[in-house]
């Protein structure tokens, strides 16, 4: 079935396709970071179009922190099977051995070790020279500053003060051995664009985005879903069922749910348009300090 995309979405889609093709043509070993979320889903959907009738000529990579919601892992494996692309999964085994977890180590250590270091390990292990990420500029103020083709040093570091000028649609893709490029095909999309696109193109999404009765506990103002018995309950805490959904999906003890009745896409869109909170508000890792995203990115976080 052919969907009718608005001229606005068509233009964004065409831009993403152009970026993906440019990477495939100019890099030796590209990979697509697949984080299972809605942005990854849109990115993967567009990749199917960009290379049709061929399959996207790169594998998918998931850096598994071992704390993803169970539904996410199931959805990930289904998705890889559906699109017929190779799925690589990397876990920072060293972090696992050291017992790093969001519960025991706190959110910032967990993110640093299991996500940032895990990603660096994976990119080094498979020697990828370009990695697609689904990040958007409207997510966060330092992302708003990042180029579509974001150059990384051999240590995976981003230098925000010395970014290559990016003119017209001509991307300077040249790197030295050991350096790499992070590439963001959805840079110019907003959260609303993503949902509009998901609705128009019927892009499959993890059911966690839709409201449903789920077991949660309330902590520090955030609703944490009890996804398995690894989450130690504090004294006096008993999970209760609430109709919630997730606006963004990370590691389960680090991602707050929101109370919601929106169990269909149109309802989500309506809710979104009325929302007064930002998307990353539910991400507990970003709250540490105002410049924290930039800091993480300089260290090689996506």
């Amino acid at each position: 079935m052919k969907s009718i995309l608005s001229p606005h979405l068509l233009r964004l889609e065409a831009e993403a396709i152009f970026i993906m093709r440019e990477v495939v043509a100019e890099f030796e070993r590209p990979v697509m970071l697949y984080s299972i979320g809605k942005d990854s889903g849109v990115m993967l959907h567009i990749a199917q179009k960009a290379f049709f009738p061929a399959k996207p000529p790169f594998p998918l990579l998931h850096v598994d922190t071992t704390w993803k919601f169970q539904e996410m892992i199931a959805f990930r494996d289904q998705t890889a099977a559906r699109v017929g692309m190779e799925l690589l999964v990397h876990i920072n085994e060293d972090g696992v051995r050291r017992g790093v977890s969001p519960v025991a180590s706190g959110s910032s250590v967990h993110t640093q070790v299991m996500k940032t270091e895990g990603l660096r390990q994976a990119l080094d292990k498979w020697k990828f020279d370009a990695a697609f990420g689904g990040a958007r500029r409207d997510e966060e103020k330092s992302r708003a500053k990042e180029r579509i083709f974001s150059h990384r040093s051999t240590a995976h570091a981003w230098d925000p003060r010395n970014q290559r000028p990016e003119l017209w649609n001509i991307f300077n893709t040249r790197i030295k051995p050991g350096e790499s490029m992070r590439v963001f095909p959805l840079s110019n999309w907003t959260e609303i664009d993503v949902w509009d696109y998901i609705a128009a193109e019927e892009v499959p999404i993890v059911p966690l985005y839709l409201a449903k009765e789920r077991p949660v506990v309330e902590r520090g103002g955030a609703l944490i879903m009890v996804d398995d018995d690894r989450l130690p309950l504090l004294p006096g805490e008993t999970p209760r069922m609430e109709k919630v959904r997730f606006r963004t999906l990370g590691c389960y003890p680090l991602t707050g749910a929101m109370r919601s009745e929106a169990s269909t896409l149109p309802e989500i869109l309506a809710e979104m348009r009325a929302s007064t909170m930002s998307e990353r508000e539910g991400r507990l890792i970003d709250h540490d300090e105002s410049g924290s995203m930039e800091k993480k990115k300089r260290e090689g976080y996506f």
Binding site: D138, K141, A144, R161, Q163, G291, E294
Partner: peptide
């Protein structure tokens, strides 16, 4: 709201482009 880099906030100037929607 738009000067998102640490260096920009410290110096009170814009260094690189910010895209807003």
């Amino acid at each position: 709201l738009v000067d998102g880099l640490e260096a920009e906030r410290e110096q009170g100037i814009t260094i690189d482009v910010a895209y807003r929607y």
